[in-house]
Design a protein around this nucleic acid. Structure first.
Lengths: 203, 203
DNA sequence: ACCTGAACACCGTTCAAGT
DNA sequence: ACCTGAACACCGTTCAAGT
């Protein structure tokens, strides 16, 4: 349960590490999703929450905090992908949520927008980590990306004029630059967006 | 290869449908990721591109187009999750990209911001579909969400004052409302964001 | 040369049988 | 009552042997 050094977190692998059969894990956890969520929450302990308290504008600090979160996920590709589906609900995750909310509050973002914006920011960070981390993981995704690059370059000006016109601009920038730019877009969008409708919680 | 009615797209399932062994598929496709990308692109043929040409503000039409994309992914949960990792590069995907870019151009978004914004919009749409579609798929994710709900409600005002203060606001709204709000945030953020740095394409 | 059966090395989950 | 060995029903990928 508290094993580390996990590249691909699976029931059987973990069971083996604990010198037992895979069935035994079902005493502590109901299924793989719950296992992922638990391991993920442990991992979130590595997020540098102090980035929220450092110097600088609240936006800068928010970006630094979220970047730390991305870095942590990035180091564990399998969990990054799991994080999108199996949301953790442990103490470390709550700490991260708290820190993000505190920064949004400091920036004067009203509560409804902060609530929805929180999800947007974390989802973007998680998806970016998952997407990009897969690249380094399996060699095949490299080929996928190459195929997309070629497809965009070879776009016919007749059928896809916009793509052809933009050309290499579509592929410009590094992953880091794009990540940072995305955070800026989200933050400025959240502060500018209309207040969301105030419906009662779903269930 | 052109089989449909697929809930979980796997090599073996598809091979069985084609009355052959799984090894045979490797003649047409190098691995599962490539298979997913191919099937996904076929699926994207169902996206309602005419939403881009309908009446209304370019923002409204963009949201309608992206919502159609989400709906299509939503109907095929397994592929939605695959879409984040295995980017398709087929004709249907290019058509979608073209349509989004055309709307951004109509809105007067400069090309560099449109290029990066495109990725942001599609990534958000894809991640939302993947995240939400998993909910309906496996019953366990429901429990995960319940656990998170409980964790947020029970947040201690001492350790997590922001969470406690927001209370049910954190969980307010339906999936549709949040999706639409997210699109608005992204669009307004993209139009307001600074021009990204103009670095040459990575390699 | 092209296709593929069979094998290898993995999975998650269940459940009856053990302690 | 609690734990788990063994079994079931799946996977992706490879490769030698067939045509």
């Amino acid at each position: 349960m508290r094993a580390e050094g996990l590249e691909r977190v699976t029931m059987r692998r973990l069971a083996q590490e604990l010198d037992t059969g895979p069935a035994s894990l079902y005493v502590y956890v109901r299924n793989t999703a719950e296992l992922h969520a638990a391991v993920l929450d442990r991992l979130l302990g590595e997020v540098d929450l102090s980035a929220a308290g450092a110097e600088g504008d609240w936006r800068e600090r928010l970006v630094r905090l979220l970047t730390s979160y991305v870095d942590v996920l990035f180091a564990h590709p399998a969990l990054a992908r799991a994080a999108l589906v199996a949301r953790p609900s442990g103490e470390h995750y709550l700490d991260l949520v708290e820190a993000v909310l505190a920064l949004l509050a400091e920036g004067g973002v009203p509560s409804a927008r902060a609530s929805w914006g929180l999800d947007l920011l974390l989802q973007y960070a998680t998806a970016s980590a998952a997407e990009h981390s897969a690249q380094g993981q399996a060699p095949q995704t490299k080929d996928d990306w190459d195929a997309l690059t070629r497809a965009l370059r070879d776009a016919s000006p007749d059928r896809h004029p916009q793509i052809a016109a933009l050309g290499t601009t579509l592929l410009s920038g590094t992953g880091e630059e794009r990540l940072a730019w995305g955070f800026q877009v989200l933050i400025s969008g959240i502060t500018a967006a209309p207040e969301p409708p105030t419906t009662p919680p779903t269930p």
